[in-house]
Write a protein that binds this DNA or RNA. Structure first.
Lengths: 225, 225
DNA sequence: GTCTGTTTGAAACATACGTTTGAGACACTC
DNA sequence: GAGTGTCTCAAACGTATGTTTCAAACAGAC
């Protein structure tokens, strides 16, 4: 065959296993046996396990960042001279991830879960790779957030962005498990789209919370320094 | 010595390394060499690596859940017949974690980071252990949250609790790094307590966000199923 | 002092990992 | 059809892991 499908089979299997079990917990032998290819094929085609991890991310992150740039372009054009609102900015991001062309029905879930893992698992090489490959859409998103929340001080905004990131990364990185728990308890099925639809209002409300430095209840034992 | 301090040295080293690097990424040899004890001591005193992980959690989770139960007792007594508000409930939890007797200055950060890892890293044995050992204070907190947000459906509440958990665990687990970044950028110093003071209003606002199923902006391409 | 149960020490065990090797199969060019 | 570059395969390599072993050191009781 002109271009072997071995590479794609490996990427498919790796993507799924990484999302299910994390990076360190997934061995090359699991990947190659799921992909039904020889063990050596990974090192032949990708060079190393770390390079395979990068390739898995690049495969969906490259088209995603293009989609995202486009969404931001449209958004800013639509808004004319005044900056997009917080809600619009958050939805632009959410839509871009939901509208991504997907290889299978689990596409978004895997996508989100991998992003969460990238943040959560302290894989130095991965963070370095993502920073130098995809820094532009990220800082553009940050700029939009800043314009959308001019009432916040830089420090408040900084921490609230961390809170948003945390809620998102954490939820998405364990979304499979959480969905299972919920279904076992209540029988309710939840799609990733629905999780996103619930997450965005939560984030927007938190981001715009009234008092940036609300005091604890009067009888609290905490003293504010 | 009557009761060897080997056990505590192992627990101290394990706690710190687990929080820094995760469970699978931390080997027993790292732990024993940091603790300056023999490799076999771990299996002698704890039986296995998994049992050591459980012991690390039990050491801070047992006193914490006691403190928490007490805080909830006081809160419910103070409120009499009407249920505590969301703010009061969140502050009771926050105070309990801040007031915890700490072994060192990194106590809270490590505590939070480990909790986040427990959720994130798919360690089946750990989740099982935590569920059957500490289900009571957890479900009590859930009950209080339910009483404090009667306007939410069970499903909405479930997901918003996950969002809160995520924002908290994520922020606290990387609070050291985040504080350093902020200080380098702006020169502002931030204590863990101050982070909590910013976090609680964010969470409360998100939890009480107006529309549980806010629609995307009118011109959005998302269609809600 | 001697015995007994507990704890430490160095070494080895079995297994799993990521990676490398070298021979073979295949498709394609000239 | 010989030659060439690409890819696959089974096997092995070196290393790191969790766990076990067994002798030595130690403590306290009698």
């Amino acid at each position: 065959m002109a271009q072997s499908d071995t590479v794609d089979r490996i990427l498919d299997a790796a993507e799924e296993l990484f999302a299910e079990r994390g990076f360190s917990e997934t061995s090359l032998r699991m990947i190659t046996s799921k992909a039904k290819v020889n063990l050596a094929a990974v090192n032949y085609h990708f060079g190393s396990k770390n390079a395979l991890i990068h390739a898995v991310f690049a495969r969906f992150l490259t088209p995603f960042s293009a989609t995202l740039e486009q969404a931001f372009d449209e958004l800013e054009e639509r808004c004319g001279d005044q900056p997009p609102t917080l809600n619009e900015t958050l939805w632009a991001l959410t839509e871009s991830s939901i509208r991504m062309p997907q290889r299978n029905e689990k596409g978004i879930a895997i996508f989100m879960r991998l992003l969460g893992l990238a943040y959560t698992q302290s894989q130095g090489h991965l963070r370095k790779f993502l920073e130098q490959e995809y820094s532009e859409p990220f800082s553009r998103f940050m700029r939009l957030l800043k314009q959308a929340t001019p009432q916040l001080s830089a420090v408040d905004r900084y921490w609230r962005i961390q809170f948003m990131l945390g809620a998102t990364a954490f939820t998405m990185s364990s979304s499979d498990a959480l969905r299972d728990i919920l279904q076992n308890k209540t029988g309710v099925e939840t799609s990733v789209q629905e999780i996103a639809l619930r997450l965005v209002p939560f984030l927007a409300a938190g981001m715009q919370a009234e008092n940036p430095m609300l005091m604890p209840p009067v009888d609290s034992k905490i003293s504010v320094a």
